[in-house]
Nucleic acid binder design. Structure first.
Lengths: 345, 345
DNA sequence: GTTCAAGTTTAAAGCGCTTTGATAAATTGT
DNA sequence: ACAATTTATCAAAGCGCTTTAAACTTGAAC
């Protein structure tokens, strides 16, 4: 169908070498003489030879794919975040000549989905996205002995691999900053609390308040899927509180977008009347520094997470890292112009 | 690493049959006696046997993957739309035991990306997403003789496969409806005009106006990436026009969200003061029927497109459909409550 | 009872790579 | 100069499936 291109055998014949030698030369084995390797590389380039990944997989027993299943909460938790993560993973994998095997969860037998994919060797391991506080996928994958990594964290008896940011401490630091500026009533616009990261973020705020001897007010905690619309509506609710909170913490830039709009509509100045800090997942098309005022954020690139998670999963599959490996991606608190001291009145 | 499961040879031995027979039984070949097939099926189920997709691919010469490359305009065109499409494609493919090979475009040599993927047999064909009016990918893939399908359309000398909705006629019908209600000044909030679909939509509006002998006003055409924010800002611009347009056409539900908010902020009633029609890509989490007022829309599910595009691409790869196959997905005009007659004033 | 065709099943080749174990060539030591 | 190493290359096996071509069964037809 497509242009039948040269295969290893033909390349080897052309070079008057054995397939074994050509294969090794291409794959960087040390026992190949430099002169030979150069000849092989040159010929490969000349003919545009690329190893057939299928044949390689059959020989090595590795599919070269990592499996990513659409979050089953898709439609909730969702879109820009998941896609941004995907983009990072895809980017990283292409540098290692690997790919993503993307699939939808099977409503009926979601449990067998993973096993099926592994058994048919469509993927060598999985990424678990959008973990909830007690996520059953971890135990499932563990019992099936399938390599996996969680992006984020969940509560589990048995250790498992994960890569996450320190959500609690990020929001604690943000809150600490606000408290330092004299804020005492801080509202939180957050994702639904059954997500582990959302729960942790509220915890961080709580800790900062308690550390400062300030009361934690349940009534200032708002949870909603992270949409611009949600940010707008929740902010309007916040503004009805009496006395009005003097600062708002937003769980995502998308929520912040809605939040800022609501504040503008209400005729409030940031940071004059109210301070705002958001968590920035670094979407290329929503830039905190370009906003008016430039937004103070806790920042951690979701695309970067995608890259790192894919990398770590590969290393786990390769046995270079243990199945219990975990890592906290550092995160910055970027000071810009949306935080100021509380004004009396 | 993962649970070594049974392979064809072992299954055949267990059944005291040849691999050929078992393979055929499993793949539904007609020459297998019904009794034999049942035995095979039962055993396969018992042992949870799944054919190794890699080995199958090597034998058949088909990877079983379709390639999807992130739109290079990613960050523009984008997110919820692309992901929704992806979800549909993933869903469809899993019913055919196929997968998506998802990759990022290589900035440096995007042209070789496709060829590389085909040569290394990572995919059997490609979906071209988010085509612009003159999209170079079509000529590229054609010259490389790689099976592909365009989701949407583009201008090209040579015929190629595509699946699209009739954007022009959709917007023409929507405009026609508005005109029927007496509207004469209709504003359009649209994606950037270099995208083929956006261009077509404007064309449709223009045609409807001309057919009714009404003037087409360039100044009422607004183009912006399809974000809620964009819809909000552009609507505010529209409201400053004098005389004020009496109807707005929105290119997506996300734009419409922003549009409606701006109207609400301005204290305008829909459809009392102004009528609104939007194009609905059917996101599960933005429902036109749930809005206030329920929105009249042109409707065509992007997820459904993903399914159909994947299906057609497969059929083209299989040779069941010609490489010039194309199809216009029908689209509905759903009347709800956001359109009304022009009120004098 | 043969004969033939249709219906079933099988042995074996092959897909294109990696890798093992053997072999040949180059290098070293004595 | 010849054995002992080390280095570079090769032939062949094998990964797990599909598919071709051949072989074996039936059962009907004569």
């Amino acid at each position: 169908m497509a242009n039948k291109s040269m295969n290893l055998k033909q390349l080897a014949e052309h070079l008057d070498l054995s397939q074994a030698t050509v294969s090794r030369a291409l794959n960087g084995y040390p026992e190949i003489r430099e002169a030979t390797r150069n000849k092989v590389l040159a010929a490969a380039a000349e003919f545009g030879y690329r190893a057939n990944s299928i044949a390689r997989s059959l020989a090595t027993g590795r599919s070269g794919n990592i499996g990513i299943v659409f979050p089953d909460n898709f439609g909730m938790m969702f879109d820009p975040h998941f896609l941004e993560f995907l983009a990072g993973a895809a980017e990283m994998l292409s540098t290692r000549d690997m790919s993503i095997n993307l699939s939808m969860p099977d409503r009926n037998h979601e449990s067998s989905k993973y096993a099926d994919i592994i058994r048919s060797q469509l993927a060598d391991g999985f990424v678990v996205n959008g973990p909830v506080r007690h996520d059953s996928r971890v135990a499932l994958l563990q019992s099936l002995k399938i390599p996996f990594i969680v992006h984020g964290r969940t509560e589990s008896e048995v250790p498992f691999a994960w890569v996450d940011i320190d959500n609690a401490s990020a929001f604690q630091r943000a809150a600490h900053l606000l408290i330092g500026f004299g804020h005492r009533r801080i509202a939180l616009i957050n994702a639904p609390k059954h997500f582990h990261f959302a729960f942790q973020r509220e915890l961080g705020l709580k800790q900062a308040l308690e550390a400062a001897g300030l009361p934690f007010e349940e009534g200032l905690m708002f949870n909603e899927p992270q949409t611009e619309d949600g940010g707008y509506r929740l902010t309007n609710l916040i503004l009805q509180k009496n006395p009005r909170p003097t600062a708002i913490l937003c769980g995502s830039m998308i929520l912040a977008l809605g939040c800022l709009r609501a504040l503008r509509d209400a005729g409030l100045e940031v940071p004059g009347d109210i301070s705002v800090i958001a968590h920035d997942d670094v979407f290329p098309y929503i830039r905190a520094e370009a906003m008016r005022p430039a937004l103070t954020t806790t920042r951690s690139s979701l695309r970067e997470h995608g890259r790192r998670v894919a990398e770590v999963l590969n290393d786990i599959i390769d046995g270079k890292l243990p199945a219990s490996y975990h890592e906290i991606v550092p995160l910055e608190l970027v000071l810009r112009d949306s935080v100021g001291p509380v004004t009396p009145g």
